[in-house]
Amino acid sequence: MIELDNVAYSYGGDALLNDISFSLAPGSFHFLTGPSGSGKTTFLKLCYGALLPTEGDVRIFDHSAKDMGRDAVAYARRRIGVVHQDCKFLDHLPLNENIALPLSVSGQATPDQFANLQELMSWVGLVGRGEALPPELSGGERQRAALARALIMSPDVILADEPTGNVDWEMSQRLLRLLVELNKMGKTVMIATHDMALIRAAKALVSARVLRISNNTLQSAGVDL
């Protein structure tokens, strides 16, 4: 689905990632860990075409990211749900329109899809909050709304960047369970986090591989949880 082949990424002359080869297999569940500033977010951005490698090649759904125009990247992103720690929304639109935004931009905003929206909001526990504006939401609600938005297109891959960074332990457990449930539905999931407690908690729920970025390179932590 997404492959990195001898990828390096430098920013301002400093190497952030070096000689990384990795393949994200369909239906897999990965944790990506490493200290702050180690390049986890950069790694995810390379995976969804927001950044291009300075060396090597990233293949997204069998297309080289270097050969993909901006529109091709946009189409690929409709198959990749991305959840950020600082989930950004369009603050002037109510929550249900924000969650349905991927449908609108892809021209798939049909009544059937909007029925799915209600189901999805119920699944992430946001029933009754559809008319709220994003600034009115709590941190946990924003994270769940970001997850719902990432899922509305039923993407093949879900990339979550510190999805539990701004929420309490109980809410991070809830988000983890949602992501595990998605993986069991066949979705490929990768979570970037430096929260080892979250990774340990996942042990009871899912078979996941842990990857660590250390010294600019990607290492398998060697632990199948």
């Binding site: 927001a50 901006r70 529109d71 189409y75 992103r77 950004k88 369009l90 935004l101 931009v105 938005r149």
Partner: peptide, 16 residues
């Protein structure tokens, strides 16, 4: 700029 960033994140093309 933030609106554009959000739109790109959810798969909006430049044309859209």
């Amino acid at each position: 700029a933030q609106v554009i960033e959000v739109l790109r994140l959810v798969g909006a093309t430049d044309g859209y």
